[in-house]
């Protein structure tokens, strides 16, 4: 890029006399919230939210094009569309991590954004202290990505996997792309899914836009979220609503992500106990 004040040291204030006022301020605000999510879509109080873990949950998604959204999520086996009206779609979510379906060839290939053939990815795997010739397990890879992406930040845009391997920086999309690349490199079909994450603590349920990775185990797709320190979080309830996989993994992937965003819910509402059996 052009000559610029890219080094903060070059721009350093010279002789600044900074006048300050004595203060005792409110506690600092956390930037992290409860996780590295794309969008906060709503917050609601639900009596006995902790019990949601045991239920099939109905979720109302307010969207601009309910029919189109319904057709897109039709293949997500953990969701059933149970109602559609002019401005919303209601889905029923089951508490399962397994998603039926076989992998297509594309979910094993190296692509522009899930670029496991790049040296940055193979270098990561080469540095692994393996105890056997067997592929690393998805859980080993997931935990590795959580640790490798040490700088949890929203500053990155939508970095490709090899870039994430180099920077060790990013939010949910960077975690998901890198985990998918490592999984494919180890021989597992893998894909990145965009969807909604419901998070309950106490009587409060929050909904976020989120990205995670699905890795095929030979029978089903299994969900893996590398933004979390562990697959399950004690004392917290999480429910994933997969809406649309990232299909466009080519150089024009940003156009694909934009298309998904135009269909994205503007609000999410949980209806406990309304999901039926």
């Amino acid at each position: 890029m052009r000559g610029s004040c890219t080094d903060a040291g070059r721009c350093r204030a010279k002789g600044a006399i900074v006048a300050l006022a004595l203060v005792s301020l409110a506690p600092p605000v956390s930037a992290e919230g409860v996780g590295l999510y794309l969008w906060e879509l709503g917050k609601q109080s639900v009596s006995g939210a902790d019990r949601l873990a045991d239920e099939t949950v109905a979720v109302v998604l307010e969207v601009r094009d309910p029919q189109e959204v319904a057709s897109r999520i039709g293949s997500a086996a953990t969701l059933d569309v149970i109602a559609i009206d002019l401005s919303s779609i209601t889905v029923r979510s089951r508490s399962t991590d397994s998603i039926r379906g076989g992998p297509g060839a594309a979910t094993s290939a190296s692509s522009f954004i899930i670029d496991y053939e790049e040296p940055a990815i193979s270098d990561l795997l080469a540095g692994w202290q393996r105890t056997s010739a067997a592929p690393l397990t998805p859980e080993e890879l997931r935990a590795f990505v959580y640790g490798h992406v040490a700088e949890k930040t929203y500053l990155r845009g939508y970095d490709v996997a090899s870039r994430v391997a180099e920077t060790g920086s990013g939010d949910c999309t960077e975690h998901a792309f890198l985990l998918a690349a490592l999984a494919r490199a180890e021989g597992y079909p893998a894909r990145v899914v965009l969807g909604i994450l419901l998070h309950a603590a106490g009587d409060e349920v929050q909904a976020f836009g989120h990205a995670w990775t699905e890795i095929h185990d030979g029978t089903d797709w299994q969900r893996h979220d590398a933004t979390l320190p562990a697959e399950s979080m004690p004392g917290e309830w999480l429910r994933y609503l997969p809406l649309m996989p990232v299909v466009n993994e080519g150089i024009s992937y940003q156009m694909g992500l934009f298309e998904i965003a135009t269909l994205w819910p503007s609000a999410v509402r949980v209806v406990p106990g309304a999901g039926g059996p």
Binding site: M1, R2, G3, S4, C5, T6, D7, A8, G9, R10, C11, R12, A13, A16, V18
Partner: peptide, 17 residues
């Protein structure tokens, strides 16, 4: 100069000072 990163860096430099 790249105005976006430069203004952010000047702010960081002033805060650091």
């Amino acid at each position: 100069i790249d105005m976006g990163v430069s203004i952010a860096n000047v702010a960081d430099a002033v805060i650091e000072s």
